[in-house]
Structures are given as structure tokens and as C-alpha cells.
């Protein structure tokens, strides 16, 4: 169980997150959405103890995450950062082996358990055949799977991912999200991630957390969070929300940013209404 208690986080004098309380539901997929710079990445990194809040704290199983041995925490919680870097010679297997680091003994011996975890992670990500390729030579989707395999070898209950689908084409985005859902449903991993694509977020999440101006604007099931009101408040975008014809989850159709409504260009204020009307007709 992971929860943030009244945290305030900043870089230097700039406060990014303030008075934020959040409980991550165990066994669920939680997704943070929000505008650029709203603090969702900062929130994820704070939950992963990479940033220390200036006030409040993060509790993992009831204990302050910043007062625990960082290696012990790494056995319970894995993080995949947004643009992770590995030296170019590193092979997929070597990368996945890195996930065993927190389980290692002082002299770095390699146990059967370690080897088994690495093999399982490779197999789960369908990378066994590519295990001895340098990560650098893989395609974007394969590379992302290799990094996820590394977090799997860590054998944690919690997996945090910062925009895991960025830079991937649609098919690989779906591929990665399917993998994460599978990890959640079959391996009961609690997954917390930041996503930019609202509709994919709604389709794949159990819980959505809308982050706005450094705090939680609203949270809950996608149906509760993905409303025109919330989208307007956090993105400043007018939209229509309809049921996704495939998954039944909410689907956001943007109309225009609210900036277009104000000012001299008065004619454009008609657009949302027209568009809404057009949609009504289309139904």
C-alpha cells in the first residue's frame, strides 16, 4: 500500500506539488493525467522516493519511504523513468539482470533465484530470443519491453511507469498497455503510470487521477474523471465525452481550446455548440 500524505514538493524555490493526499489502490491500474507541468511526473517520482518532499511524506506499507533502506524499497517498488539510459553495449539480458541489483548480496553473487527471475522476465516480455542483442539495436517497442522486463526481474508488487508509451506508434502503445494490463490481471501487480493519451488512459485504467496545479483535482473510475467539466478545468479544452464504441469507456472528443472563445474572434464561440449539435445528429 502506497500513499502520499499531505506532500509538498519543489525544485529549488519553485513549488510543484502542494498539499497533496493520495492513496494508491492495491491491485489496480492507476493513471495520472494532467497538463504539461501540472506535476504528475513529479508526483510519480516522489512516490518512487526519487524526490524528497519538503513537507509531508510518502508511506509504503505504513512506513516512511524515505526512512527505509532504499534497497529494501526497491524490492517492493519498481520505477521505469521516462527516458532511461543504458550504455550502448548493454545487452537485453544484462539490462534485465540489473533488476536483480536490490536483491543482491554484498559481493554480487548470482543465485538460481536470480537467474530464474531473469528468465521469467525475458519470457514474459517475449525477449528470450533477443536476450543477447544490445538494447541499442532494438526497435522502440522492443526496447521498452526490455526496460519493463528489467522492472519485472525486480519482483516487486508495485510498478510505476512515467509515460511508458511516449515515442511509440499506436500499435506499440497498445502492445505496451496490453502487457501492463496482463501484468496487473494475471500477476496482480499494482500499476501506477503517467499517460498523455486520455482515451487510452480511460480504456486501460481502473482509477484515473486528474492532477492540476500541483494537487489532485479529482480521482476515481474513468467514467467519473473523464467529464467535459474536468477536461475543461485541467486542460482548458472544450470537449464532448461519448462512450468508446469498442471498450465502452469514456472517449474524449476535443472541440476547441477555450482560448478561442474569448477575444475579438466572436464567431468562433459558435463552434462548440455547432460541433455538439453535429455529434448529436451523428448519433
Amino acid at each position: 500500500m502506497l500513499l502520499a500524505e499531505n506532500i509538498q514538493v519543489g525544485y529549488g524555490s519553485k513549488i510543484v506539488i502542494q498539499e497533496l493526499n493520495l492513496t494508491i489502490a492495491p491491485g489496480q491500474i492507476t493513471t495520472f493525467i494532467g497538463a504539461n507541468g501540472c506535476g504528475k511526473s513529479t508526483l510519480l517520482r516522489t512516490l518512487a522516493r526519487l524526490l524528497k518532499p519538503t513537507a509531508g511524506t510518502v508511506l509504503l506499507d505504513g512506513r516512511d519511504i524515505f526512512k527505509r533502506s532504499t534497497r529494501e524499497v526497491a524490492k517492493q517498488l519498481a520505477l521505469l523513468p521516462q527516458t532511461p539510459y543504458a550504455p550502448p553495449e548493454v545487452t537485453v539480458r544484462q539490462l534485465v539482470r540489473l533488476g536483480r541489483y536490490p536483491h543482491g548480496r554484498w559481493l554480487g553473487g548470482w543465485s538460481d533465484r536470480d537467474e530464474q527471475a531473469v528468465q521469467e522476465a525475458l519470457a514474459a516480455m517475449k525477449l528470450t530470443d533477443l536476450a543477447d542483442q544490445p538494447v541499442d539495436t532494438l526497435s522502440g517497442g522492443q526496447r521498452q519491453r526490455a526496460w519493463i522486463a528489467m522492472t519485472l526481474a525486480q519482483e516487486t508488487d508495485l510498478l510505476l511507469l512515467d509515460e511508458p508509451t511516449t515515442y511509440l506508434d499506436l500499435s506499440h502503445q497498445l502492445d505496451i498497455l496490453d502487457i501492463l494490463r496482463e501484468l496487473n490481471r494475471r500477476h496482480h501487480k499494482t500499476i501506477v503510470m503517467v499517460l498523455h493519451d486520455l482515451n487510452l488512459a480511460a480504456r486501460y485504467s481502473d482509477v484515473m487521477v486528474a492532477v492540476h496545479q500541483g494537487t489532485v483535482y479529482t480521482q476515481g473510475k474513468p467514467e467519473k474523471v473523464m467529464t467535459p467539466e474536468t477536461i475543461r478545468a485541467i486542460f482548458d479544452v472544450e470537449c464532448v465525452v461519448i462512450p468508446d464504441p469498442v471498450a465502452g469507456t469514456p472517449l474524449c472528443i476535443p472541440i476547441a481550446t477555450r482560448n478561442h472563445e474569448v477575444g475579438e474572434d466572436a464567431g468562433r464561440t459558435q463552434e462548440p455548440a455547432q460541433a455538439r449539435h453535429a455529434l448529436e445528429l451523428a448519433r
Partner: peptide, 16 residues
């Protein structure tokens, strides 16, 4: 060895 990866990665794995 672990210092060769980006700071986020090694810190998340429990390296100091």
C-alpha cells in the same frame, strides 16, 4: 556498474 545507467534508473533500483 549500476552508476553507468541514468540516475533515475539506478536510484530506483536502490543504488545510493
Amino acid at each position: 556498474h549500476i552508476l553507468q545507467f541514468s540516475d533515475d534508473v539506478s536510484a530506483a533500483l536502490g543504488a545510493r
